[in-house]
Amino acid sequence: MVDGSSVIDVFIEAINTREAGARTALLRRSLTADVVFWGPLGRRVGRQAVEDFITEVVQGHPAGPCRFSRTTGVDAPEEWARFGWRFEGGDGVPLLTGMDVVHLTPRGAIDQIVVFAGTLN
């Protein structure tokens, strides 16, 4: 079984990496080329689409430089995993929290990401 925590932490490192080449390398280690990303702004397909989202929405946020962090352990029954997260501005103030659910391939990469942003009422 794949260690979901490791690949998720590589993905989070990619989100927080400001240097484009290093971010691309980390995304190659953590995501499949055809990853499906269900985010707050809709569905995107492909590693490049996820990288564009990170560059535009996360790295380009007006409260930047922003930081994304995992706030819970990784719950990974079989090939599915979930974890809580926090997105905070450069001053450390939380901007958004939520939970992601990811699907892990047998080789240890993420091929699906579903983002649940905000609290559930």
Rank of each mutant, 00 (worst) to 15 (best):
L41K: 07
R82N: 10
S5Y: 05
L95C: 07
F37K: 08
Q112W: 06
L95Q: 07
P62D: 03
V10H: 01
N16E: 01
P40Q: 12
S69H: 07
L104A: 10
C66Q: 01
V58W: 11
R23F: 03
A109H: 13
P40K: 08
S30V: 10
M1W: 06
P106V: 14
L41E: 09
R43C: 09
G73S: 07
L31M: 09
D34S: 13
L41A: 11
E79V: 12
F37T: 08
V10S: 02
R47W: 00
T24K: 12
R82A: 13
A49I: 08
V7T: 15
A49L: 04
Q59E: 09
D100G: 05
V102C: 10
Q112L: 13
H103T: 12
V45H: 01
R67V: 11
F116G: 07
V10W: 01
L31C: 13
A81I: 14
V50I: 13
G4Q: 10
A76W: 02
F53G: 05
V7Y: 01
F53C: 04
P77M: 12
L27I: 09
W38S: 10
F11E: 06
E19W: 03
L41H: 09
F11I: 02
L120M: 12
I54K: 04
W38H: 14
V102W: 07
G73E: 15
T17D: 00
R107A: 15
E88C: 02
E51S: 09
L41T: 13
D75Q: 12
D75Y: 15
A14V: 09
A76E: 15
G64C: 02
D3V: 01
V57Y: 09
T97W: 06
G92I: 00
L96Y: 05
S69T: 13
H61V: 04
Q48G: 08
H61G: 04
I54Q: 04
D9K: 03
V93P: 00
E78N: 15
L120Y: 11
T24G: 07
R28Y: 04
D75N: 13
G4W: 00
S30I: 10
E19H: 06
A20N: 05
I15L: 09
G21I: 08
M1P: 14
P40T: 15
F87W: 12
E79I: 11
H61L: 01
G90V: 04
T32K: 10
A76V: 14
L26P: 04
Q48S: 12
